[in-house]
């Protein structure tokens, strides 16, 4: 009971600390920039569901905003404490390390889901001002892929933070080389990227959007399970790694 109480407090405490962090401001600025793109495009041409899915959901959100927000919060959940050298106050308390890891993820999850899901809703609302009627029903197709990919990304980056001291740099390199570069090459190599499964979900969601000829998506149901599995798998891997690894300053 005491251990559970500690962990519940850890979630609430870390949630509040993240809420007051600069990451929120940075995420808001990035979202505002994307909103400017949506408005400018809407003023010049009408948004269609297809165009919105391709440019906003898959490119601006899927390849940029969603991974960046997940990266900031995923690596920062533990990384911030490590950087300010205050992790000692957590690991010397009577909490299982795996619990600390899971609690830290739970604390950042609302931020990531609200920013990414809320960001999508906001951009969709803006686009509908200059959108065709079909855009009004498009949100239902895009929301689940964005939320599930957010989950997979944040679990992955949180896992990297448990494995590596400089997880942020590794994560940035990962986003550009794996998600952006490998995720857009022809063939099956792109299947190593999370964005591939996000796109497969979007293409298979019933939205009026078809994949490029060389994309070769998997079906939406499989993609959904892969993303959920990645989230659970990275949570388990990260928890195991965090439990075994010592948190100390280098000698």
């Amino acid at each position: 009971m005491t251990g559970l109480r500690s962990l519940l407090f850890l979630v609430a405490y870390s949630f509040r600390r993240q809420l007051r962090s600069r990451k929120m401001l940075l995420a808001a600025i990035l979202l505002a920039l994307i909103a400017v793109v949506v408005v400018r495009f809407g003023v010049r041409a009408t948004w269609s569901a297809r165009r919105f899915g391709d440019l906003v959901v898959l490119k601006l959100l899927g390849l940029f905003f969603v991974p960046v927000v997940a990266l900031m919060f995923g690596t920062g959940a533990i990384g911030d404490d490590r950087d300010e050298r205050s992790l000692v106050y957590l690991v010397t308390r009577p909490m299982a390390r795996s619990g600390i890891f899971a609690g830290k993820l739970l604390a950042v999850l609302p931020h990531v889901l609200v920013l990414n899901g809320g960001g999508l809703v906001l951009l969709w609302l803006l686009a509908t001002v200059w959108g065709r009627p079909e855009l009004e029903g498009a949100l239902a197709h895009y929301l689940a892929p964005v939320l599930l990919s957010s989950l997979a990304y944040v679990a992955f980056f949180h896992c990297l933070a448990a494995l590596f001291r400089h997880a942020t740099l590794i994560s940035i390199a990962y986003v550009f080389f794996v998600e952006v570069f490998l995720g857009s090459v022809p063939g099956i190599l792109k299947r190593v990227s999370i964005s591939f499964y996000t796109a497969s979900m979007v293409y298979g969601s019933g939205a009026p959007l078809s994949p490029p000829p060389v994309f070769l998506p998997i079906d939406a149901s499989t993609a959904r399970w892969v993303l959920a599995g990645l989230a659970v798998g990275f949570l388990a891997l990260g928890a195991a790694a965090f439990s075994r690894r010592e948190q100390h300053d280098p000698v």
């Binding site: 600390r17 300010e84 106050y89 909490m95």
Partner: peptide
């Protein structure tokens, strides 16, 4: 444990910090 390293959650007050540490101990 009182560590030698001079690190805290700097944005907090002393009272908030010590209370938070008590709560992390399950109190």
């Amino acid at each position: 444990f009182s560590p030698e390293v001079d690190a805290f959650h700097e944005e907090m007050t002393g009272r908030e910090f010590v209370t938070a540490m008590a709560r992390l101990s399950g109190i």
